[in-house]
Design a protein around this nucleic acid. Structure first.
Lengths: 349, 349
DNA sequence: CGGACCTTTGTTATCGCTAACATAGCAGGT
DNA sequence: ACCTGCTATGTTAGCGATAACAAAGGTCCG
């Protein structure tokens, strides 16, 4: 066994801790802790001394230790169906932006449009003790819902207007938005309007849009609905193209197609170009979501803009207030923020 | 002061802890801890008893406390330039998928293509004590690089082949991939080939692709390079369209345009359709990244497929081995995994 | 010049869990 | 009956930070 001289630098395997910094700077750990946060009362000379020690040691604060003690993890959990080619990436971005500078960090999870996977994720997220949790949609498994209700933290459901919200909501009615789109087409003179969407109800928002389509058609006295269900949600561009082919085969008289998303609308549009079907003369095409592709494609695609980024941003703002309320032990009341949507008429319909 | 009867249920403000479960099940906290992990030796009758107590109390394990004690946070930090409309969303997805079932969770951060923001994020991520960190690209600020080097955890740089890697690498040479694309166009008979990209070097991979374009042109004896730099990276569809207009104005004789990404290529293509410029007869267009849009648009866009998802998946696999190595105190040697790319010839070039 | 009051720093006691070791109980071989 | 070796559980001591309180030293005022 080697005898080590007392006050000498010893090789440390593990990264430096706050005590190491404190010893080096000749202060207590509490003073180091204060120096590393702002707002604490500390002499500037002491702070400088500590910062020097921090730099020399390459010390990095260990938040997991800090949050155990302070009971603030600085996490916010957010569950989205997917981030690939989807509106939710914009929402996640808006949420992240809104939380900039608040010291909160977003923990993202993908549910793949499955509420069973959502349930699993809710549980694993709660183990991280987030200070709030954001979910997409208002449909959950029974146990998922219970977990949310008992989590003891603010819960925000987004992208929908659930009939019985867990607590807070930031969203809009997908059904109403689809209705508005149907009315727009009707106003433009289209009567034989079809709908293209995925096969299952896995994508709740897609199902709501189809519902809105059916409702609006009924309200306008157009009782012949023409619905093509094709592909597992989220329905891709390519699937949108195939669905259009089927729509035309099944109802050759169809005058317009509403697609569950802009991506499938784009696929449908390209299929038309490929087959030399004039859009909107022979068939009009409309999408949903106002993806960049819709404004940029030729012809540009008529769609419903839903302010994805804004949903995220406003979720973040609500969440900050809600967390503030929890911290001050004055929980805020459940709020429902309804975001705008807007039919954007372009060349395709 | 109210005297509370001893063994009676008392209203608890804070969520139940492991001790509460232990008391209820009549065991020690250690036994509860073991019951909640798999692989530990525990009698099934005891486990059931504990699980019942867990359910009744609605107990959720507190991982932040656990990781302080076990020194395993179960986090992996991943920094990507952006997730919106980008290849990186696929990479993030591949990474997440590869980590499924390993108990590791991805902590995502957006750098906005800025190495200064990356530096900031590296620091805030390290505070969470991730078990590994994944970054995009090989260019970092001096301090960012130092933080990575001293982090004491596996570091993986992706999407590039840095000349002097920090440790592990999973990527490909963007320059070479662009060269391959130039050669493809050359082989098809195109000689007056232009390049469309963003203005700054902010997007390192974009800059590399331009470099590859220049190198390949030189090697083929085509010394007249035609480069349009327009828009802050990442360059959008719309900007791709505008850039194409400029390209045609500045060099009316241009025969083909290579775009820094498929998104700008698509914008360029749509601009052509809008202006009735035949693609590829009058001008050929090629992109980069093999986004879904390229295979689906009409005409379909010639591009370089770079296996984005695979980069993420293989990063995840390497990372699991690296973390295993750290845990067993046998760090693995630095590895460089070179992923494939492939020129995909379609209709536009 | 003494006390009120502020600023700056230190002390102590957790936070909720798990590693490491200790121990009890039991089976099986001799 | 004794020892070996296993499984199932408990005990003790932290992990690295922060909350809450305590205390030291200075300023200011009547």
């Amino acid at each position: 066994m080697v005898v080590r001289p007392a006050a000498t630098t010893v090789v440390k395997a593990s990264p430096p801790t706050m005590s190491d910094v404190a010893r080096k700077a000749g202060v207590s750990t509490m003073t180091v802790s204060r120096a590393l946060r702002d707002g604490a009362s500390i002499a500037s000379s002491t702070r400088e001394k500590i910062m020097r020690a921090v730099d020399e040691l390459g010390y990095v604060l260990d938040q997991s230790a800090g949050s155990l003690s302070s009971k603030r993890t600085g996490f916010v959990a957010a569950l989205v169906p997917s981030l690939n080619n989807s509106n939710f990436a914009d929402t996640a971005r808006g949420l992240t932006d809104a939380l900039q500078g608040s010291g909160l960090q977003v923990l993202l999870g993908y549910t793949d449009y499955l509420i069973e996977k959502e349930e699993e994720l809710i549980e694993s997220m709660l183990r991280r003790r987030p200070e709030a949790i954001v979910v997409t949609g208002g449909r959950h498994t029974a146990r998922g819902r219970k977990l949310l209700e008992n989590a003891g933290i603010p819960v925000i459901e987004t992208w929908d207007l659930p009939p019985r919200p867990v607590r807070h909501v930031v969203g809009f009615s997908n059904a109403e938005a689809a209705e508005a789109l149907v009315r727009h087409l009707h106003q433009k003179g289209y009567r034989k309007i079809g709908f293209i969407g995925g096969t299952s109800n896995r994508d709740t928002r897609g199902a709501d849009r189809r519902l809105g389509y059916e409702r609006a058609m009924g309200a306008l006295g157009l009782k012949d609905t023409r619905i093509i269900s094709f592909g597992t949600p989220p329905i891709s561009m390519k699937q949108g193209g195939e669905a259009l082919t089927r729509l035309l085969e099944q109802w050759p008289d169809v005058e317009a197609a509403i697609c569950v998303s802009d991506l499938s609308a784009f696929g449908a549009l390209m299929e038309c170009r490929r087959r030399n079907i004039a859009v909107p003369e022979r068939i009009a095409i409309a999408g949903f979501g106002d993806f960049e592709i819709s404004s940029c494609s030729y012809p540009a695609i008529t769609t419903v803009s839903v302010n994805c980024y804004d949903i995220g941003r406003r979720t973040g703002e609500l969440l900050l207030r809600a967390i503030e309320g929890e911290r001050a032990r004055k929980p805020i009341a459940g709020e429902t923020v309804i975001t705008d949507y807007e039919v954007i008429a372009r060349e395709s319909a």
